[in-house]
Design a protein around this nucleic acid. Structure first.
Lengths: 249, 249
DNA sequence: CTAGGTTGTTCTCATCACGAGAACAACTGG
DNA sequence: CCAGTTGTTCTCGTGATGAGAACAACCTAG
């Protein structure tokens, strides 16, 4: 029997019924605080609970499914640049039996970094979704609290060795904007002088636009210079966060 | 309708048929070279091709499925310590439509680091599996070549900031044994003196057994001291490999 | 047994990266 | 105009790194 014959007679129903979903940990920064996109569940199970946005995978790649879910819940339309500027990467998969009481569900979780976005309530499709400060999240449906925790860990680590902090800010930004991203994600303010030196000395992290912001911040100070994201995909040497002995062992 | 009533009337068949598999990138070091465990496929599709060991997920966690597949293909029995000493972590998931010509298959890939293991051919169950040097792998079935490449990338990175090199060696090892692991995985020999200083200076990487090896290496030299794995889970500061400008951008 | 080569281990030294602190000018709102 | 804030650039001490070398312990070849 050749491969063609084999495939024609193949019966997919012989395999155990498993559903595959994507769930998205979408992070953004508003007012200097890290927020995550959450939806309120309408139906059972966990009706009324908050959950990560997600849904079943259709005839599409996993990446495409994640971006589609993100678009649906944020109200962003593809093709206008804002959705495309969101950084999206696969986080990991969760498939413990019993994590969904309905049936065996394997969820492929994604992690998204977005610049500050309008409140999703405006769009009708995205009603029920909202940006919640990560330190006010509380309990979530399914195992989504664990997924969120993993996403936050990954986000904190990614800022160390990649230039992805630029995914949280507008295309033109100041060094202080970047520093605010690190402060929000890491939960501690980096030393301003050392941070400045570091960002400018790592090759490809940022490049100067030559321009200066029209105005300084609300509370004074000189008008800061503007930068764009550089072409580096990894930071060398990395921008390590202040060490915490406890996390090492 | 309460949640109980909802669940009792729930019909899993309404969801699209997707199969979930695990595939394992199992790495070990033999004769100073990095090897990966591969199986020869018996049936269609890709009959006769080599592939990563893997199979459908049963009523078990994803981690358990990966360890089961690993046990089946290596011939190791659970409970004797050898299988339990293998480091196993989730790599990422692969789910492009069409990656398996039979049906939609989402594969959760795992990465395993094993100390040198006996050839799997001995056990009858594991016939068809073999350890292949990673630079002699050639083409693989499905998208397994891409999965293997991702696994190798992850392995190379993990040696930088975790003490997982110890998972490739026996419980008692010499600094030179560790250095051979780095040489095999990274493809370049670290500076012996600096490597020695670094391994001993990073807290929790290794701890001394106080003992000395009974014999020196085949080609002479003093009898090296023996060490055990320490209790660190991360290396601080990391043991960075020599930089490659090209990979950064 | 000896000789020559190999290897484990410990130094030295120059360079680089980092944390902490400070200086200073440009700018804000009141 | 004033007082406070902030962007940017320094300095200085410390720790980590890469390169090279020294040296003794040990192997195999002869």
């Amino acid at each position: 029997m050749d491969e063609r014959t084999f495939l024609d007679g193949y019966d997919p129903a012989q395999f155990p019924a498993v559903a595959v979903t994507v769930d998205v940990v979408a992070l953004t920064i508003r007012d200097g605080r890290l927020h995550v996109l959450l939806v309120e569940r309408g139906g059972h199970p966990f009706a009324g609970w908050r959950a990560l946005p997600g849904g079943f995978v259709r005839d599409e790649t996993l990446d495409a499914a994640a971006r589609r879910e993100l678009a649906e819940e944020t109200g962003l339309r593809p093709g206008q640049g804002r959705l495309e500027r969101v950084h999206l990467e696969q986080l990991r998969s969760y498939g413990d039996p019993g994590r969904d009481p309905r049936m065996r569900v394997v969820s492929v979780a994604y992690l998204a970094f977005a610049p500050s976005l309008p409140d999703p309530r405006a769009g009708s499709d995205a009603a029920g979704a909202s940006w919640v400060p990560v330190d006010e999240v509380g309990e979530l449906a399914f195992d989504h609290a664990a997924i969120l925790a993993d996403g936050l860990d990954r986000a904190r680590a990614k800022l160390e060795y990649t230039p992805l902090a630029t995914a949280f800010v507008e295309p033109e930004f100041t060094i202080a904007d970047l520093r605010a991203v690190y402060a929000a994600v890491w939960g501690e303010e980096p030393h301003a002088g050392n941070f400045h030196r570091k960002v400018l000395s790592v090759p490809g992290f940022v490049e100067s636009t030559g321009a200066t912001a029209a105005r300084a911040g609300e509370r004074g100070g000189p008008r800061p210079r503007l930068y764009r994201a550089g072409d580096a995909r990894l930071l060398h040497p990395a921008l390590l966060r202040p060490e915490r002995e406890d996390h090492i062992r």
